[in-house]
């Protein structure tokens, strides 16, 4: 390998290492805050609608937030954030995901840096036409209340498809 290749190779490895180090060090400090909610209660004068949220802790405990009034412009991340009064540990993830990764809801779950804790929250969307829960391929920020009226968060140690009532 000649010098013209070797030098850029080393620069590339060093740059990637520096960027990764920056993210690992500053990421949790700057961004791992209960973040993301723009105050949503009836904002922008749009007509309100009712949505329902289920939080299933996977240990038999289920919390229902029925008929929460929200603006039509909202998404289910802000609905969750407001329903649990901000008791949410989540980190926003930019392009191409463009949504929050939710680590803990009401203090329950695994933090972004919790060695030995393997469970995670999955998001499920109620499919009214066939009466079952569909796994959401996108984050809660991208699930608009205009298209969906009920979602569930489910915490599972390994297999999120153990969620009772899922369509599969």
């Amino acid at each position: 390998m000649n010098c013209r290749i070797f030098a850029p190779m080393m620069i590339a490895i060093a740059l990637l290492g520096v960027f990764w180090g920056l993210a690992e060090y500053f990421g949790p400090r700057l961004l791992n805050i209960p973040s993301g909610s723009n105050d949503s209660s009836g904002s922008q004068g749009t007509a309100n609608m009712n949505v329902t949220l289920l939080i299933d802790f996977g240990n038999g405990t289920k919390l229902w937030f029925n008929d929460t009034k929200v603006a039509r412009t909202e998404n289910f991340y802000t609905v969750t954030y407001n329903d649990v009064r901000g008791d949410l540990e989540a980190v926003w993830n930019g392009y191409p995901i463009n949504a929050h990764l939710v680590y803990k809801i009401m203090g329950y779950g695994c933090g972004s840096t919790s060695p030995g804790c393997n469970g995670y929250w999955s998001l499920w969307v109620w499919n009214a036409s066939i009466g079952c829960w569909s796994y959401s391929e996108v984050g809660a920020d991208l699930v608009s209340v205009q298209g969906v009226t009920m979602v569930a968060w489910y915490f599972a140690d390994n297999d999120p498809h153990s969620f009772p009532g899922n369509c599969s």
Partner: peptide, 8 residues
């Protein structure tokens, strides 16, 4: 710079 590699 931070969100480029955080959280994923």
């Amino acid at each position: 710079l931070i969100t480029m590699n955080f959280p994923l």
